[in-house]
Design a protein around this nucleic acid. Structure first.
Length: 1026
RNA sequence: GCGCUUGUGGCGGAAUUGGUAGACGCGCCAGACUUAGGAUCUGGUAUCUCCGAUGUGCAGGUUCGAGUCCUGUCAGGCGCACCA
């Protein structure tokens, strides 16, 4: 009987569908386990061998957990909205839904061939109205919420407040404004875009529009005017993680900074909780570090500096310098001082953020970001032209240019700021090296201890004052945060204030300065985060529409009971002629407030019928809470029912690529924390354990064309010519040798090309390991492997390749080894062959063999030889595997599990094992890796139920116990020869035996024994001395 | 520049708390069976000056003993990158 994988796999895949083997329901009698894969974007290229790697790894774990008695949820779905389908639609006119569904069908077909235990009844598609209803719903909830560290006086009493703050209904904030305006609001740590100030009277006097605008400053989902990444090539804005090296990740179009009105999510409000949560989850250090980096918490100090020069509106520029001296009466301790030179009393100072408060005495200049609103205020008349020219230069530089060359540029504003610690007037410069979006958009420059300030000071000839004992700043700045502070204040200068940091360590000096700044009322301790609010709107068609209409300019939520608001039909997917997003092409896209339905645009009267939002949501919207939806995918009353959420809790094991570290994995954590605050999700972190599967790289092949000719040279000779490498399809190269005719057929433009072959008459290709992608022509399709070797071999091989988390090149060389193993296993499990002519009858034999014993090797063997009890050796081999596999699957060390399986099989084959116990156990142990074959074995052993529900074999230590142990005898740590001992040998006996052994004499000659170290069961090390 | 991570045969990779380095597989070599072999089976396979010595990127250290721990250093991969 041959191992006919095609027949077996087809049979079981069909059976699993028929018997709904993988359907799962809440079952309170069993512990739950939730396994999740990052759902795929169904691209037109289909799956390649890299995709299933993570799916197989999680499938094995899911099956293993099920065998251990868990109720396992292992769902799958599609991240179906996205740019490629839309770009394709623009080019071909095909509706993106059509191509998306085609791609989904293709994916499904490919996935089905690999034998995953997905519960397809729970499939979700982000583009399905029943799904995105809840995306829209969550957005509306965010719109209706604000975030504060502690409850407002207007919040309901007795609520449990999260240490780092939580989302609360916006109505609480409105009540607060009605009573107090913004007075005292800062005490509650309300997350906001800008620090607005208004009174209750002002608030109450404002109209709806104004109130709406003000509330946008606080809402978690809000409309904001922000600098966005505008991608003209795609006609849309992009999130930071969708832009790499100044170009779009999708399509590679240039991206520029532009100020636009966009929907945003106040992710920054959750910065601290996103950071804190990392300590509670089992993710790799590298992903946690990446997220910490992205969140970018930095604890520092905000310090106010007063501006010491007249405003540019002062009549004569010439006088501005003279004015400097007249401001010396403004001291740090005199906030009520006469501000007259500055015209207005407000705005006469500005705030900077620093983490190096200890360096206050080394400030020699100040720098503002070019985009800072302060620039206008501090620019003097005489510097106006220079500043304007500089701003123009900065605006002309793209994000990319700024990223690539960090050249030192800047311009003097003409104004000075008074250092509150030294009283010195520090010139205020404007430079692109200071970012508007971080801190306050203004810094104090300490060139001695900051390399960027140092470069700037050197370039513009500004003074550099070292503040740390022994720091040599003649060549470069001393950035380290360690050492003893000096020059603070300088000994030769009369102190300006009664404050000194000299002699303190940097750490102490920072603390002392913070204390002083607070007490003197010139600043405060501040924590800044790099994490920015997420831009949440896109000017595209193929995304979730916003459930928002514009009531006389006020963004208004469509009532919750009317959701979902379905994506309208359009006749083209491009922006309209007036530059509106594609939804501007829709003719039925207006909200009838009275009848609560979507109506034709022409009915818009701005009385009861209003225009609907034309933006759509970004890709991460639909992927942020999908894991909750899988728990209860058909519920149309709630995102997830309380029951389902409480049963499934959160994902126990999440498997996916590390490329989502700063995108999806931040957004979904944020989204889930918000839903947690709402009480929708009972767990604050969505993904308890995260495994990042490595990338399977492809082996790209190249041919070498001599430049400006139509001649190709083989690899060996390529260095003799000036050649251009050209990628070659992986399918027309075998063992590095190109099929020249196939190449010509593949690339007709080279039909007449000449190929210079090597001495053996072959064309040898060059190769490199690269990411698997269509454009490299190195994509290996899993279907081909399944066709040739079967899904079980593919599964086994992908796991045998190496640790799951490690990237590795795809190489088909080893696949034979895995296939061979399964064939050997087949032979072992199905031998001895049936004595009865018909295979069908063999099953009956199972029950009729009870009378046969282990001591009856001559017994009548039924197909799977279940007549014989297992011998001691067999049980030892088997239980070694049970132990190893159980521990290794838990540790995701699948490659070593497979190795152990191979060892066990070799052992059992040698022992000619025919025991039913052994074979049944092997079938179960095989089930996570090769489910088809395991089912077949299970079935051949006479079982009628699925192997998925078999009990995981219990490991019995007794079978591993040996009567004797082998111990290595070593001299000075060098192993020399092994000795056998009874298992219970004492240290003394072992030592004695080792020293007395004749072999030892050779090694001990000329030495005396200094001591002997006996490691029980392992080794006897004799330490020798001359 | 900062952070994370990885360096072991011809190749992919194994090595609980430090305790026989190279499991398992590929490849290669030899043999068996064959009309045949890209089938199957058996044996071998780190290196060298081969009764011995040397070997886990490199240089030190701790230890009776180091792939494993410590210090420094080099190289590759990934992430962040003017974040004050």
């Amino acid at each position: 009987m041959e191992y006919n994988f095609r027949e077996i796999e087809q049979k079981w895949q069909q059976k699993w569908v028929e018997e709904k083997t993988y359907q799962v329901a809440e079952d309170k009698s069993k512990p739950k386990f939730y396994v999740l894969n990052m759902f795929p974007y169904p691209s037109g290229a289909g799956l390649h061998v890299g995709h299933p790697l993570g799916y197989i790894a999680s499938d094995i774990y899911a099956r293993f957990k099920r065998l251990q008695g868990y109720n396992v949820l292992n769902p799958m779905g599609y991240d179906a909205y996205g740019l490629p389908a839309e770009q394709y639609a623009i080019q071909t006119g095909q509706h993106p839904e059509k191509t998306t569904f085609q791609n989904i069908d293709r994916y499904r077909e490919q996935l089905d061939k690999i034998g995953f235990c997905f519960d397809w009844d729970r499939e979700v598609r982000t583009c399905a109205p029943g799904y995105y209803k809840w995306t829209q719903w969550a957005f509306q909830k965010m719109f209706g919420s604000f975030f504060s560290k502690s409850p407002l006086p207007t919040s309901p009493k007795g609520e449990e407040s999260h240490a780092a703050g939580k989302a609360r209904p916006i109505e609480e904030l409105v009540d607060f404004f009605e009573q107090k305006g913004t007075e005292g609001l800062e005490d509650f740590g309300v997350a906001q875009t800008e620090n607005l100030m208004f009174t209750a009277e002002e608030w109450n006097s404002w109209d709806e529009k104004k109130k709406s605008d003000v509330l946008m400053n606080y809402r978690i989902a809000f409309m904001g005017e922000t600098m966005v990444n505008w991608c003209a090539g795609l006609g849309t804005v992009l999130a930071n993680d969708e832009v790499v090296d100044g170009v779009s990740v999708r399509g590679g179009f240039p991206v520029e900074q532009k100020k636009m009105r966009q929907w945003c999510l106040r992710v920054s409000a959750y910065a601290q909780r996103l950071l804190d949560g990392l300590d509670t989850i089992e993710w790799s250090d590298s992903i946690k570090e990446t997220q910490k980096n992205w969140i970018g918490r930095s604890e520092g100090t905000e310090v106010q500096f007063k501006i010491a020069s007249p405003l540019p509106t002062s009549p004569k520029g010439e006088e501005s310098h003279a004015a400097c001296s007249s401001t010396e009466n403004l001291t740090a301790n005199n906030p009520d001082g006469n501000h007259s030179p500055l015209g207005e009393t407000e705005g006469a100072s500005f705030t900077i953020f620093t983490t190096r408060a200890d360096t206050m005495f080394g400030v020699t200049f100040m720098v503002l970001a070019p985009e800072s609103e302060l620039v206008e205020k501090v620019t003097t008349a005489e510097q106006k032209a220079a500043v304007e020219e500089y701003i123009k230069y900065v605006k002309g530089r793209t994000e990319r240019e700024r990223m690539i060359d960090h050249k030192v540029t800047g311009v003097f504003s003409g104004s000075y700021a008074i250092n509150p610690f030294t009283g010195e007037k520090n010139p205020i410069w404007i430079s692109e090296y200071v970012l508007a979006g971080y801190g306050t958009g203004a810094i104090m420059a300490v060139p001695a201890h900051d390399s960027r300030d140092y470069a700037f000071a050197k370039h513009f000839g500004l003074p550099i004052i070292p503040l740390i004992e022994g720091a040599d700043v003649s060549e470069e700045s001393y950035d380290a945060k360690e050492g003893i502070v000096c020059n603070s204040p300088r000994k030769d200068v009369k102190p300006y204030i009664d404050f000194s940091l000299n002699g303190l360590t940097v750490k102490e000096a920072i603390a002392a300065t913070k204390k002083y700044v607070k007490e003197a009322g010139i600043g405060r301790v501040k924590v800044n985060y790099r994490l920015r609010d997420a831009i949440f709107s896109r000017q595209r068609y193929w995304g979730e529409p916003f459930p928002v209409y514009y009531k006389n300019g006020i963004p208004t939520m469509i009532p919750e009971e009317c959701l979902p608001i379905e994506l309208p039909e359009v006749d083209k997917f491009l922006p309209t002629e007036t530059g509106e997003p594609p939804l501007g092409n829709a003719t039925v896209w207006a909200w009838d407030e009275v009848n609560k339905k979507i109506v034709e645009n022409k009915k818009i009267d701005n009385k009861t019928v209003f225009p609907i939002e034309l933006y759509t949501m970004p890709g991460f919207a639909g992927s942020s809470a999908y894991y909750l939806r899988y728990m209860d995918p058909h519920n149309d009353q709630a995102l997830v029912s309380k029951d389902a959420d409480e049963y499934w809790q959160n994902v126990d094991l999440y498997v996916g690529g590390s490329e989502h570290a700063t995108g999806h994995l931040i957004y979904s954590r944020f989204w889930n924390k918000f839903l947690f605050d709402l009480g929708v999700s009972c767990k604050e972190e969505p993904f308890q354990k995260l495994i990042n599967q490595g990338m399977i790289q492809g082996r790209s092949n190249f041919v070498y064309r001599i430049k400006d000719t139509n001649t190709f040279v083989t690899l060996e000779k390529k260095d003799q010519y000036d050649v251009t490498p050209i990628h070659v399809d992986v399918n027309i190269v075998s063992a590095d040798v190109l099929d020249v005719e196939a190449f010509k057929a593949w690339r007709p433009e080279y039909n007449t090309a000449e190929f210079i072959l090597n001495d053996e008459g072959k064309y040898v290709c060059g190769w490199a390991v690269e990411k698997m992608s269509k454009s490299m022509f190195n994509v290996v399709n899993p279907d081909m492997i399944v066709e040739k070797f079967g899904a079980d071999t593919l599964r086994l091989y992908e796991m045998f390749l190496g640790p799951v988390e490690q990237s590795k090149p795809w190489d088909t060389n080893g696949i034979d080894g895995c296939h061979r193993f399964l064939k050997k296993l087949w032979k072992f499990m199905t031998s001895p062959l049936p004595t009865s002519p018909k295979g069908e009858e063999s099953h009956a034999a199972c029950s009729s063999t009870d009378n046969q014993t282990a001591n009856n090797p001559d017994g009548n063997h039924s197909p799977l030889g279940e007549t014989v009890g297992a011998s001691k050796e067999e049980l030892k081999a088997l239980h070694t595997l049970i132990k190893k596999e159980t521990a290794d699957i838990e540790a995701f060390s699948y490659n070593t599990t497979i190795a152990a399986f191979m060892v066990c099989l070799n052992e059992l084959t040698k022992l000619k094992s025919e025991s039913r116990e052994v074979k049944e156990t092997l079938a179960i142990l095989l089930a996570p890796f090769c489910p088809h074959l395991a089912e077949e074995f299970w079935h051949l052993l006479g079982h009628t139920t699925t192997v998925c529900d078999a009990p995981w074999p219990a490991f019995n230590e007794d079978y591993l116990k040996e009567d004797s142990v082998k111990m290595m005898v070593a001299f000075n740590g060098k192993a020399r020869f092994p000795l056998e001992f009874p298992a219970d040998v004492t240290k003394e006996d072992a030592e004695k035996a080792a020293l007395e052994n004749p072999q030892s004499a050779k090694w001990m000659e000329g030495f005396t024994v200094a001591k002997v170290i006996v490691v029980p069961g392992k080794m006897i090390n004799v330490v020798l001395k001359k």
